[in-house]
């Protein structure tokens, strides 16, 4: 929570943690569902054998100086779906320095995680570093979406750096970083990287069946491509003029892949 050391505002530190386990009756139990500060968690109506959790932002953030962490641990036979009630808005804060948002996800063999939160919006003047690490056991299943929107409507973006590192059975499966906004290395908005697009997103699907039946690469319109990774997974990479059109492409891809 917000603390003040020697008169200096240091920002919020908070961790939310979800543990999902096979309940032994064909469903998924949540032995740990612990929010903190601005990270509140709600269990919502589930369908079938899945447990569904909604991440509810109890205040807007992250603000400069904040350090937020969300962790999920999915055991074998468990199926966890995580969404969020609203977009996450990175804003400048009173505290000095950038904000940090860490996502730490673990899925055991035979477990499945569907991580489908709303967009992350980088507001003018904000500075945020997002680090997402996903560790999958061989035989784990994952659907993971992330969307970044650079600025609210008509607004200049803040500085946003986001690294997604996915490991499967301890080996790297996907490692991608994007760095956008004022102060990012040159050319980030140029013809090789974003070319003026203000929304970018990735949809990652990991599934053991892809080992035997690999997916082929294909375009999804002009601004998105589906490609098989060097492992049992496909990745959709998309850019779009705005959040709405980005979501449309990723939704179509999700429907096609699932």
């Amino acid at each position: 929570m917000k603390s003040r050391v020697d008169g200096v505002t240091t920002g919020v530190r908070a961790t939310a943690r979800i543990v999902a386990r096979d309940d032994g009756r064909g469903g998924t139990s949540l032995p740990v569902l612990a929010g903190e500060g601005p990270l509140a968690l709600r269990r919502t109506r589930a369908t079938g054998d899945e447990a569904r959790v909604m991440l509810v932002g109890a205040m807007s953030g992250p603000l400069g100086g904040d350090h937020l962490t969300v962790e999920a641990d999915v055991g074998g036979g468990a199926l966890l779906h995580v969404g969020s009630a609203a977009a996450t808005l990175a804003l400048p804060g009173q505290a000095k320095g950038e904000a940090r948002y860490d996502v730490r996800l673990e899925v055991a063999a035979g477990g499945e995680l569907r991580w489908l939160p709303e967009q992350l919006i980088s507001a003018r003047g904000s500075e945020l570093y997002v680090s997402s690490r996903i560790d999958l056991a061989r035989g784990a299943r994952l659907v993971y979406r992330e969307e970044q929107v650079l600025g609210r409507a008509g607004e200049e973006p803040g500085r946003l750096t986001s690294r997604l590192t996915v490991r499967l059975a301890g080996r790297p499966l996907l490692d991608q970083e994007t760095a956008c906004g004022p102060g990012a290395p040159g050319g980030w908005d140029g013809p090789a990287v974003l070319a003026g697009h203000r929304a970018l997103g990735q949809l990652l699907v990991v599934r053991p069946e892809f080992t035997e039946f690999p997916a082929g690469a294909r375009m999804l319109g002009e601004r998105a491509a589906l490609t098989p990774l060097a492992g049992p997974a496909v990745l959709v990479t998309a850019v779009a003029p705005d959040a709405l059109r980005l979501r449309r492409v990723l939704d179509e891809a999700l429907a096609a892949v699932l």
Partner: peptide, 22 residues
């Protein structure tokens, strides 16, 4: 470890490469 190596990506290069290959 190996994650010390940068992983910066260019979304448009990744997307258009799949199209160009066809």
């Amino acid at each position: 470890g190996i994650e010390a190596l940068p992983a910066v990506s260019a979304p448009l290069l990744e997307i258009t490469a799949e199209d160009h290959a066809t």
